[in-house]
Amino acid sequence: MTTMILWVIAYLIFAPLVGGILAGLDRIVSARMQGRVGPPILQPFYDVLKLMEKEALTVNKVQDFYVMCFLIFIIITGGFFFAGGDLLLVIFSLTLASVFLIVAAFSSNSPYAQIGAERELLQIMAYEPMVLMTAVGFYMFTGSFRVSDILTFGQMPLLYLIGIFFGYLFILTIKFRKSPFDLSMSHHAHQELVKGLTTEFSGKTLAMIEVAHWYENIFLLGFVFLFFVNGTPLGIALGVVVCLVAYFLEVLIDNSYARMKWQFTLKSSWVIAITAGFINLVVLRFMF
């Protein structure tokens, strides 16, 4: 029980720090890939602190409330995960958080924000099957949806869930909002949608979205980590290294692809979910 609370507190404090530093690294590595020097590593923190200083400018009153809910539910999602809770609960509260963000975007009558919100819905449709299959895969392998049981199971899930692992990496690009799947909003200057989902948010509201994004990234990498735990320090070390490699891979993909259409996003992620994910589940079913 105490370790559980400690993990949650550690998550609350360290996730935004590590998430922000990862975002800073992301920007430096991206810049280097483009032959630039890039910003200081603490730049994402400067950005958020600056946004906090800006004048509050909102389109309507409910918008800030919804964005606040988004942040809170992202934190709760990560909290469930790091407390060793139920994977299904984690996934559904993550979906709930995303829905709050979408409602916030819809609540402004800006056409850009609304198209961004529609695209976000499509993205959810694209990644959700694979996320669910990931949870089901862990269940079929370890016999439990609880993260704490998966951690103490003793065998490395990766060896049996390799298809699911690759499927999960694929949808991670969508969740990290990286090209080619950064349809609804992006950190780069793709301006055909202005800023998509976040067009109408500014100042503190935008800062909240940014911080939520850091929390979310850490918890998504936590999923990657779960594939490597086998109860030994080696598994933990391997997990952390693979998380960093996965993050680097996402940055590389981000810098080497143009944005795709939503049709491709939806089709490709479902095809991956059915081939890599579902076949993996069927094999798992007949192996045990």
Binding site: R27, A31, Q34, G35, R36, V37, G38, P39, P40, Q43, Y46, D47, K50, K54, L57, A189, Q191, V194, K195, T198, T199, E200, F201, S202, L206
Partner: peptide, 21 residues
């Protein structure tokens, strides 16, 4: 561009007046 790279100073080109300083 890489030649001048204003992102060194944290400068980003946004297309959105609500995000701009």
């Amino acid at each position: 561009t890489p030649m001048y790279d204003v992102e060194r100073f944290g400068i980003i080109n946004t297309g959105n007046p609500k995000h701009a300083d």
